Measured scan of single mutants.
Amino acid sequence: MTLTLTVPPGAKVRVRITNENGETTEIEVEPGETVTITLPAGSTVRVEVEVVDPDGRKRTETFTLKP
């Protein structure tokens, strides 16, 4: 399973991925970048995406991906 994120110009994104064992991976994606994350097959993962807009506003979306 893959997750692809494209960050709009001016925004910053931090992604936290937590697996079933509670292990967390965190990455930051710079403005204008596209990143593809390969998620472990057969695992349920929690993905938290934090977006910081150019004006400093933050918003966070959290979702769970199941196999």
Score class of each variant (00 low, 15 high):
residue 49 V to S: 00
residue 28 E to I: 03
residue 14 R to P: 05
residue 33 E to T: 12
residue 5 L to M: 12
residue 45 V to D: 03
residue 57 R to D: 01
residue 25 T to R: 09
residue 1 M to K: 02
residue 52 V to Y: 04
residue 47 V to C: 02
residue 20 E to I: 05
residue 64 T to E: 15
residue 21 N to Y: 09
residue 37 I to V: 10
residue 2 T to M: 07
residue 32 G to F: 12
residue 28 E to V: 02
residue 2 T to I: 13
residue 27 I to M: 10
residue 60 T to A: 01
residue 15 V to Q: 02
residue 48 E to R: 02
residue 63 F to D: 00
residue 52 V to T: 15
residue 53 D to G: 11
residue 10 G to N: 10
residue 29 V to R: 10
residue 48 E to M: 03
residue 48 E to N: 02
residue 21 N to L: 07
residue 67 P to M: 14
residue 28 E to N: 09
residue 49 V to E: 00
residue 15 V to T: 10
residue 30 E to R: 09
residue 52 V to R: 03
residue 45 V to A: 05
residue 36 T to N: 10
residue 65 L to S: 01
residue 13 V to G: 05
residue 40 P to E: 12
residue 39 L to M: 11
residue 62 T to Q: 03
residue 47 V to W: 01
residue 67 P to G: 07
residue 30 E to S: 05
residue 37 I to L: 07
residue 13 V to I: 03
residue 11 A to C: 03
residue 17 I to P: 02
residue 41 A to T: 09
residue 7 V to L: 11
residue 5 L to H: 04
residue 9 P to F: 06
residue 19 N to H: 06
residue 20 E to W: 07
residue 43 S to E: 15
residue 38 T to I: 06
residue 44 T to V: 09
residue 18 T to S: 08
residue 19 N to E: 08
residue 3 L to A: 09
residue 61 E to L: 15
residue 47 V to I: 05
residue 58 K to L: 05
residue 60 T to W: 11
residue 54 P to C: 12
residue 56 G to W: 00
residue 37 I to P: 02
residue 34 T to D: 09
residue 2 T to D: 03
residue 53 D to H: 04
residue 51 V to M: 04
residue 10 G to V: 06
residue 6 T to W: 15
residue 67 P to H: 11
residue 63 F to E: 01
residue 43 S to H: 09
residue 61 E to A: 08
residue 5 L to P: 03
residue 65 L to M: 13
residue 37 I to F: 11
residue 8 P to N: 12
residue 57 R to I: 06
residue 64 T to K: 02
residue 36 T to V: 12
residue 45 V to G: 09
residue 40 P to F: 12
residue 32 G to R: 12
residue 36 T to Y: 11
residue 8 P to W: 14
residue 18 T to E: 10
residue 46 R to F: 10
residue 46 R to D: 04
residue 65 L to T: 01
residue 38 T to Y: 07
residue 63 F to K: 00
residue 2 T to H: 09
residue 33 E to W: 08
residue 55 D to F: 02
residue 31 P to G: 09
residue 4 T to F: 10
residue 59 R to G: 00
residue 44 T to M: 08
residue 50 E to A: 02
residue 3 L to W: 10
residue 3 L to N: 04
residue 26 E to H: 06
residue 66 K to Q: 14
residue 52 V to P: 00
residue 43 S to C: 12
residue 13 V to C: 11
residue 50 E to M: 02
residue 51 V to R: 01
residue 65 L to E: 01
residue 56 G to R: 00
residue 48 E to A: 03
residue 46 R to N: 04
residue 47 V to G: 08
residue 19 N to P: 15
residue 2 T to K: 08
residue 5 L to C: 14
residue 3 L to F: 06
residue 9 P to D: 08
residue 26 E to P: 14
residue 31 P to M: 10
residue 60 T to S: 01
residue 24 T to Y: 06
residue 52 V to L: 02
residue 6 T to P: 14
residue 22 G to E: 10
residue 3 L to Y: 05
residue 32 G to V: 15
residue 64 T to F: 15
residue 4 T to V: 10
residue 60 T to L: 05
residue 10 G to S: 07
residue 46 R to V: 12
residue 9 P to W: 08
residue 38 T to L: 11
residue 57 R to M: 04
residue 53 D to Q: 03
residue 8 P to E: 14
residue 45 V to W: 13
residue 56 G to D: 00
residue 67 P to Y: 15
residue 3 L to R: 02
residue 14 R to V: 13
residue 23 E to D: 10
residue 49 V to K: 01
residue 41 A to P: 04
residue 3 L to K: 02
residue 14 R to Y: 11
residue 41 A to G: 10
residue 65 L to C: 15
residue 65 L to N: 00
residue 66 K to V: 15
residue 21 N to K: 04
residue 35 V to D: 04
residue 35 V to A: 05
residue 8 P to C: 14
residue 21 N to T: 06
residue 14 R to H: 10
residue 50 E to R: 02
residue 44 T to P: 12
residue 2 T to Q: 05
residue 5 L to Q: 03
residue 18 T to W: 14
residue 4 T to A: 07
residue 13 V to D: 03
residue 13 V to Q: 02
residue 6 T to I: 09
residue 40 P to W: 15
residue 1 M to R: 02
residue 13 V to A: 08
residue 65 L to Q: 00
residue 1 M to I: 10
residue 48 E to F: 02
residue 21 N to D: 11
residue 63 F to T: 02
residue 58 K to Q: 02
residue 61 E to I: 15
residue 31 P to F: 10
residue 34 T to W: 15
residue 61 E to D: 02
residue 16 R to W: 13
residue 65 L to A: 01
residue 60 T to Y: 07
residue 40 P to H: 12
residue 59 R to V: 07
residue 59 R to L: 03
residue 37 I to W: 13
residue 3 L to D: 01
residue 7 V to T: 05
residue 10 G to E: 12
residue 63 F to C: 15
residue 9 P to V: 08
residue 32 G to S: 14
residue 12 K to F: 08
residue 14 R to W: 08
residue 50 E to H: 03
residue 42 G to Q: 14
residue 55 D to T: 02
residue 63 F to S: 01
residue 48 E to V: 05
residue 25 T to N: 05
residue 33 E to S: 13
residue 22 G to F: 08
residue 39 L to A: 14
residue 50 E to L: 01
residue 54 P to K: 09
residue 64 T to Y: 15
residue 42 G to L: 08
residue 26 E to F: 03
residue 20 E to Y: 08
residue 56 G to E: 00
residue 18 T to D: 07
residue 11 A to S: 10
residue 61 E to T: 14
residue 46 R to Q: 06
residue 3 L to E: 02
residue 53 D to N: 02
residue 60 T to R: 02
residue 44 T to Q: 05
residue 30 E to H: 08
residue 43 S to P: 05
residue 39 L to R: 07
residue 22 G to W: 11
residue 66 K to A: 14
residue 27 I to E: 11
residue 38 T to K: 05
residue 10 G to F: 03
residue 24 T to K: 08
residue 4 T to K: 07
residue 46 R to A: 02
residue 25 T to Y: 09
residue 66 K to D: 14
residue 64 T to V: 13
residue 59 R to T: 08
residue 56 G to P: 00
residue 63 F to N: 01
residue 29 V to H: 09
residue 9 P to E: 10
residue 26 E to C: 04
residue 1 M to E: 03
residue 47 V to H: 00
residue 17 I to T: 12
residue 6 T to A: 09
residue 10 G to Y: 03
residue 9 P to I: 08
residue 51 V to K: 01
residue 1 M to A: 06
residue 17 I to D: 03
residue 7 V to Y: 15
residue 49 V to H: 00
residue 63 F to R: 00
residue 8 P to A: 12
residue 22 G to H: 11
residue 65 L to H: 01
residue 49 V to I: 13
residue 35 V to K: 05
residue 51 V to F: 11
residue 30 E to N: 04
residue 63 F to P: 00
residue 4 T to I: 12
residue 29 V to W: 15
residue 8 P to T: 14
residue 5 L to W: 12
residue 59 R to Y: 15
residue 66 K to M: 14
residue 20 E to H: 05
residue 35 V to I: 08
residue 6 T to S: 07
residue 17 I to G: 13
residue 51 V to W: 15
residue 22 G to K: 08
residue 63 F to H: 03
residue 65 L to V: 13
residue 55 D to W: 05
residue 20 E to K: 05
residue 31 P to S: 05
residue 33 E to R: 07
residue 40 P to M: 11
residue 54 P to Y: 04
residue 15 V to D: 00
residue 31 P to E: 05
residue 37 I to N: 14
residue 33 E to V: 08
residue 36 T to Q: 06
residue 10 G to T: 02
residue 42 G to F: 11
residue 7 V to W: 15
residue 22 G to R: 06
residue 39 L to G: 14
residue 36 T to E: 13
residue 25 T to W: 11
residue 13 V to T: 12
residue 26 E to Y: 03
residue 59 R to A: 01
residue 59 R to N: 01
residue 18 T to A: 04
residue 50 E to V: 03
residue 36 T to P: 10
residue 46 R to K: 06
residue 46 R to I: 12
residue 61 E to C: 15
residue 17 I to R: 08
residue 43 S to T: 12
residue 57 R to G: 03
residue 39 L to S: 12
residue 33 E to M: 07
residue 63 F to Q: 01
residue 20 E to L: 07
residue 5 L to T: 10
residue 37 I to H: 11
residue 58 K to S: 05
residue 11 A to H: 03
residue 61 E to G: 01
residue 10 G to L: 10
residue 21 N to E: 07
residue 36 T to F: 10
residue 45 V to I: 08
residue 62 T to M: 03
residue 14 R to N: 11
residue 17 I to H: 12
residue 17 I to E: 12
residue 50 E to G: 00
residue 46 R to Y: 13
residue 10 G to M: 10
residue 14 R to C: 12
residue 17 I to K: 08
residue 53 D to S: 03
residue 25 T to G: 07
residue 17 I to A: 15
residue 18 T to C: 09
residue 21 N to C: 13
residue 38 T to E: 06
residue 51 V to T: 12
residue 64 T to W: 15
residue 67 P to D: 10
residue 39 L to Y: 07
residue 49 V to G: 00
residue 41 A to L: 12
residue 56 G to K: 00
residue 42 G to C: 15
residue 2 T to E: 03
residue 59 R to P: 00
residue 51 V to L: 02
residue 39 L to F: 14
residue 31 P to Q: 08
residue 41 A to K: 09
residue 23 E to Q: 06
residue 41 A to E: 06
residue 26 E to T: 04
residue 42 G to H: 12
residue 56 G to V: 00
residue 1 M to G: 05
residue 33 E to A: 11
residue 64 T to Q: 03
residue 12 K to E: 15
residue 16 R to Q: 03
residue 38 T to C: 15
residue 4 T to C: 15
residue 44 T to S: 07
residue 39 L to I: 05
residue 19 N to M: 09
residue 10 G to D: 06
residue 20 E to R: 05
residue 20 E to S: 05
residue 19 N to Q: 09
residue 53 D to M: 14
residue 46 R to T: 10
residue 58 K to T: 10
residue 53 D to R: 01
residue 54 P to S: 09
residue 48 E to Y: 01
residue 16 R to A: 06
residue 50 E to S: 04
residue 17 I to C: 12
residue 44 T to I: 11
residue 28 E to K: 07
residue 66 K to T: 15
residue 33 E to D: 11
residue 31 P to C: 15
residue 38 T to P: 08
residue 34 T to R: 10
residue 31 P to L: 15
residue 38 T to W: 09
residue 40 P to Y: 14
residue 50 E to N: 02
residue 15 V to I: 06
residue 29 V to I: 04
residue 15 V to P: 01
residue 28 E to S: 09
residue 57 R to S: 13
residue 66 K to W: 15
residue 56 G to L: 00
residue 52 V to Q: 05
residue 44 T to A: 09
residue 52 V to S: 03
residue 51 V to D: 01
residue 5 L to E: 02
residue 22 G to D: 13
residue 32 G to E: 13
residue 10 G to W: 01
residue 38 T to V: 09
residue 7 V to R: 06
residue 43 S to L: 14
residue 2 T to G: 09
residue 57 R to N: 11
residue 3 L to G: 03
residue 29 V to P: 13
residue 40 P to N: 11
residue 39 L to K: 04
residue 24 T to I: 06
residue 54 P to I: 07
residue 60 T to D: 00
residue 44 T to E: 12
residue 46 R to P: 01
residue 63 F to W: 05
residue 16 R to F: 06
residue 43 S to Y: 07
residue 1 M to L: 08
